[in-house]
Structures are given as structure tokens and as C-alpha cells.
Nucleic acid binder design. Structure first.
Lengths: 144, 144
DNA sequence: TATACTATTGTAGTAATTCCAATTTTGAAA
DNA sequence: TTTCAAAATTGGAATTACTACAATAGTATA
């Protein structure tokens, strides 16, 4: 998978970021794990390969990614921030049972809104909350 | 305004919450300040009237309100949680310049979404980010 | 190779929130 | 009204995500 390395390196360079080993690994992890990893997820996963890795580096790296438009920060609850490299517009669903986050397809741009005259809207986020199929199943079992 | 007191007391009772002095005051504050106060805002405002007030009580109270459906928690950024008693559906806009939060009118329920088959959606939140008119003005001034 | 810039690291600090045990208040029963 | 158990409040300690900062290491260019 030298292919991947080349692609990630190019992705960083095109965003004006030096392709350091740490940045490549963080970006690779974000692309592989399509989930919505937290800083801790990333840190623990990469610390195996990069024993000297510092948490601060993960924070710094993710901040650069967000600033460069390579990733988005997801604040769906009051807990840790999560990071997402899926850049086409989509919504986030969080299960109140297990906490898992699922992307879904929604086109927020077609929706009319009022009360923001003379405001400049730059980003739009849609967050849903509820129960995932798995947790609905758990609930049904408990009821019997 | 004994009227108000009676109304707040009833509101709490109907939600199954004992109308303690602290709870009435917190609920009153949330209704008066239509903004999106933080725990600290509420604590400092009420500590004048209730010198013994504890921060923990404000936290506990707000949690009960959210659980009872009297208020909603707003996590528009990674900073402090904010609380909102405007219960009809609406979106939240946060200015990246000054941090202020503005409600706006949007009907998220008419919007189609895909990828959540067999999920049970209970809550929908819409968060926008950008610049408020005031901060757009500031920016123009700086440019001259 | 020298130099200047940039990235990484680790520690210490901050701030929001939760935990928990003691105290106070409340509502209902005697 | 008095009594008593349950619920609410309090304050201090603990937790945790995140930031600040200074020292070190790495990298590109002349």
C-alpha cells in the first residue's frame, strides 16, 4: 500500500501541511476507521506504532486538519470531540443507548430558514439523537 | 408577579419535580433570559439572591429539567453547555467571531434523510456557524 | 554544512463537570 | 403539631478534556 502513503502525502501537501510521519498516520487512521474517533481513540491506536507519540501532537494535528479543511470536528454531546473525514454534507446520529455515531444522508441546503438576515452562514450541522437498531433490540429483549 | 410564581410552580409540578426555591429560581431565570445561559451565568445571577447556592445544585437542577423535558441542552461548541427553554423546534446559530448564539426558525421535520432505517429518531438539532451582523461590521471596519 | 523554520514532546495548568458524604428541607403520616 | 423517611442542597474533592509553554528534534534551503 505505498499507493496509500503517496495519496496521503499528496493530500497533506495540497492542503499546505508538511507530510510528517505523525500527520500521515493520523490521517490514515481517520480514513481507515470510518467511525468518529476521539483524540484518545487515535492516540491509543497509534501509540503502538509510534511509542514516542504525544497526546499534544494528536491535538495539534487534528487542529491543523480542521483548519486546512481535511477533517471536521463533531461535538454531538458534551463529552469528547470527535473527528470525521467524510467531507460531503451529511448528518450525524447518536444513539442514546450505546453512544455510537452513524452518518446519514441529508441535504440541509434545500431547507429554508428565517431569522438570520444579514448573517453569514458558513457551516451547517445536523445532529439527531435516538436509538440505533441494536439498542432497540436490546430494549425489546428486556421487556419480555 | 405572584402569577409567575404560580405558573412556574405548576410547570415544575406537572413535570413531576418538587417546586423547591432553587428550581423555581433557575426556571424563572431561563424563561426571563431568552438567551442561552451557561451554568456559570445562572450560578452568578442567582447567587446574589441565594447566597448559599451551590454550583452542584445548578447542575442537578438543569439535569432534572432536561430529563423532564422542561429545557434542552445546547452543545454547539466544545465549551460549556448552554440551556434553552424555547421548546418549539428551532435552529441555533453561533457566531465564530463573538460566540453569541441566535435562535432561528427552521422546520427540520419536512426534510428527507436516508440511512437511518430501523433507527428511532427522537431529537433533531440544527447548528449553523458563521458571522453575525455585528462581527461582519467589525471586519469591514478593520479592512479600511 | 549551517541556519532558520516547523513539528513534536512532555509537563504543568485550566476549566467544566461529576462524585460523594454530610446537612438541610420537604411532604406525608401519626 | 410532631415525627420521620425521602428528597434536595451543599461544598469540597476528584476527574477529565483540553491548552499553554518551553525544550528538543526534525526538515528544507542556501
Amino acid at each position: 500500500m505505498d499507493d496509500t502513503l503517496a495519496r496521503l502525502t499528496r493530500e497533506l501537501a495540497e492542503s499546505g501541511l508538511r507530510p510528517s510521519y505523525q500527520r500521515i498516520k493520523v490521517l490514515e487512521y481517520l480514513h481507515e476507521k470510518k467511525g468518529h474517533p476521539t483524540v484518545d481513540d487515535i492516540y491509543h491506536a497509534l501509540a503502538v506504532e509510534i511509542p514516542t507519540l504525544s497526546r499534544t501532537t494528536v491535538y495539534n494535528t487534528l487542529h491543523s486538519f480542521v483548519e486546512a479543511g481535511l477533517a471536521r470536528m463533531v461535538h454531538i454531546d458534551g463529552a469528547e470531540a470527535r473527528y470525521d473525514v467524510t467531507l460531503h454534507p451529511h448528518g450525524h446520529f447518536q444513539c442514546v443507548g450505546c453512544g455510537s455515531i452513524t452518518n446519514f444522508s441529508i441535504n440541509i441546503d434545500v431547507l429554508a430558514f428565517e431569522g438570520l438576515n444579514r448573517f453569514e452562514v458558513r457551516e451547517k450541522d445536523v445532529y439527531f439523537r435516538g436509538l440505533c437498531p441494536n439498542c432497540i433490540g436490546q430494549q425489546d429483549l428486556r421487556r419480555e
